[in-house]
Design a protein around this nucleic acid. Sequence first.
DNA 1: TCTGGGGTCCTAGGACCC
DNA 2: TCTGGGGTCCTAGGACCC
Length: 357
Amino acid sequence: MSGIPWVLHVDLDQFLAAVEVLRRPELAGKPVIVGGRGDPTERAVVSTASYEARAFGVRSGMPLRIAARKVPDAVILPVDREAYLEASDAVMAAVRAQPGAVVQVLGWDEAFVGVESEAPEAYARALQAAVLERTRLHCSVGIGDTLVRAKVATGFGKPAGVYRLTAANWLEVMGARPTKDLWGVGAKVSGRLAKLGIITVAQLAAADPEDLVPEFGPRMGPWYAQLGRGDGSSVVDSTPWVARGHSRETTFQRDLTEPAQVDEAVRELMARVLQDVAKEGRPVVGLTLKVRYAPFTTKTHARKIPETSDRDEILARALELAAEIEPARPIRLLGLRAEMAMPEDAREGHTPTRSGW
DNA sequence: TCTGGGGTCCTAGGACCC
DNA sequence: TCTGGGGTCCTAGGACCC
């Protein structure tokens, strides 16, 4: 392969809903919502809605109950992780099979692809065709000269399209848009930027990085300024991902009020977390217990622990944390996270998600 | 019957050490 | 009796992404 280095960002269209439609073709063209256990009377949220459902205002993260109210005749399906993982593996295999492709998987339904090409649009179209042929799934592709520009470009390509965003057209396309449209700027940060008089991407791009330090700190301040310009890394890293930790959490359909219920829930969560940890084969070095009290205040209890793989030892530490829970307050959610020791060769030189941007 | 579940990384502030 | 200044580690809390 020869040519100019490009970053492509591949993103499956309405992934979960599309996988469901594939195995139930009669759902094609209908408003399909995937979330929770598929029961809109339960506490759960929308994972993915088909375009037909989105037309009614349904969005990811919306309570399932609200979504069902917006689209009374929607088909609501439970999340089936195994099925999506299988589909994802097939998609990524098709992507990796593209000539000269360096692939960095970001999630079930998206990946960066580094490639040298004289004709990136043609390459992107060929990639889409290969994914479609192999999986019957449609994807959109963003083309960029940095990771950030490629990622943002994908949004303009949806559905099933290709879009290119480089230093040459970044400000023209993104300049007038609100900062929240950037990857990594959410409601909170865009609000804090607005307090500094920065509303648009163009204004953020023009900001002096040092001026953002007092508000956002020495790393994030300059980082946001760079984000506004679309600048940053263009290195796609195919190094296999090394998980920092594993966590499990559950939202209780009815709030817990008895200490014995909490104790039982912690044991159950810990068992599930330790299954994942055991697969990694690395010892645990820290624990975090997250407690959401009804209705919505969250408290976390974190503890560094002496490195160990002993299940009883880890469980005992988790129960110590659980003892810090305030009694007499109804509990809606419990989460347990185990942080694992990093393998020696991954401690340095590995590109983590954020600094890799 | 408003608010999932799995991740990552950053920052502030206190404790502690020299 | 008064109390610097730099550095590191740890905990708690936030923010964001898919």
